[in-house]
Simulated scan of single mutants.
Amino acid sequence: MRVRRDARDVREVQQARPASPARAPEIRSFVAVGDSFTEGMSDLLPDGSYRGWADRLAARLAAEAGDGFHYANLAVRGKLIGQIVNEQVELAAAMEADLVTLVGGLNDVLRPRCDLDLVCARLEAAVARLAPSCGTLVLMRTPARRGPVLERCRPRVERLFLALDDIAARHGALLVDLYAPPVMGDPRLWADDRLHLTADGHRRVAEAVWQRLGHPATFDWQTVLPPPTPTRWAARFGADLRFTRQHLLPWIGRRLTGRSSGDGRPPKRPELAPLAPVVYEEG
């Protein structure tokens, strides 16, 4: 598909976005499809594994549904939209779940040599396959951390999101906008790698999807954080050095050698398996 609209149209689309369903659909099965954002990086659990917004949402849905709720998370870090289509979409469609979430494409547009038309075409192909196979399909405008990386990529990111609006409308998918609310760009909601959300960031995403499905709010996920405490130049410089050494240089190395952080890594929940209901508590 061709992406023809200018990124300025983002604000107009946000104002025209439809409201959440008047009544939340009954959901007894949930399949999450995507990359590191949906895998849950960097919402760390005590054992070193990742939780993430999808696991948090699944726990809430299981508590709502009671016995018999099933959940699969096929997402794997580092995946491009073509890999998501080839490795995850057909599996998810075959599961015929009540709810499917699909997030992808941002890893593509963060690369300087990106065929955005091809990315959007692959994204639409995924949506066209998934939408008829599930009860509710949810797409997302993913959040972006404020900073120089976003500014360099902003035109491509916003063109992707404009295309996503059209795709969602054509295929009857729900769209969750995590890009527009200022709080989701606050660096304090982002981990040290500056690419993935903290636990509080994932908690807010789970609540945003929960509300978009038509459930009553449990808190205002768009609430801004209090003013930041000023930091000294030396502390900021030290943080930048650690980020460069621990995250940026390894990321560049993987790009130069054609490797991905997800190479050889299986999804954490590859089967649509029972998820026991528990008393859900935010945290």
Rank of each mutant, 00 (worst) to 15 (best):
S42T: 02
M41N: 03
A32W: 04
R28E: 15
P46E: 11
S49D: 12
D43Y: 06
D43E: 08
R28S: 15
P46K: 07
P46N: 10
A22G: 04
R28W: 14
V33R: 00
L45A: 12
G34K: 07
V31P: 01
F37R: 02
F37E: 00
E39T: 08
P21H: 11
Y50D: 06
L44I: 13
D43L: 09
A24S: 14
D43K: 07
V31F: 00
R28Q: 15
S49C: 08
E39D: 10
G34H: 05
G34Q: 07
E39F: 02
D43S: 11
D35A: 05
G48F: 05
S36A: 07
S42R: 08
D47E: 13
R28A: 12
L45V: 09
I27P: 11
E39W: 02
D35I: 02
E26P: 15
E26M: 08
D43I: 03
S36P: 05
S36Q: 03
Y50E: 02
D35E: 07
F37P: 00
L44S: 07
P46G: 13
A24P: 10
D35R: 01
F30R: 10
S20N: 11
D43Q: 07
A24W: 06
P21V: 13
P21Q: 13
F30L: 10
D35H: 05
G48N: 14
A32I: 11
L44W: 10
E39K: 04
S29F: 08
A32Q: 05
D35S: 07
L44D: 05
T38D: 01
L45M: 12
G48A: 10
G48V: 06
M41T: 06
S42P: 04
G40Y: 01
L44A: 08
G40F: 03
E39A: 02
S49G: 14
P25E: 04
M41I: 12
V31E: 07
A32H: 10
G40K: 02
P21G: 15
P25A: 05
S29M: 13
A22N: 13
F37L: 04
Y50Q: 10
G34I: 04
A24T: 15
P46A: 06
D35Q: 03
Y50G: 05
S49L: 08
P21K: 09
S36R: 03
S29I: 12
R23T: 14
S42L: 09
S49Y: 01
P21S: 15
E39N: 04
S42H: 09
F37G: 00
A32T: 08
M41D: 00
V33Q: 05
D35M: 05
F37K: 03
M41V: 05
A32D: 04
D47C: 12
P25C: 09
F30C: 06
F37V: 01
D47Q: 13
E39S: 06
T38I: 10
M41L: 08
S20E: 14
V33D: 01
R23Q: 15
Y50K: 07
R28H: 15
S20D: 15
Y50A: 06
P46H: 11
V33N: 00
M41G: 00
D43F: 11
P25D: 06
M41F: 06
A22R: 14
S49W: 01
P21N: 15
R28F: 12
T38W: 06
S49H: 11
A32L: 04
D47Y: 05
E39C: 03
L45I: 02
P25I: 08
M41Y: 08
P46W: 09
G48T: 09
D35T: 07
D47G: 11
P25W: 12
S20V: 14
T38F: 06
S36K: 02
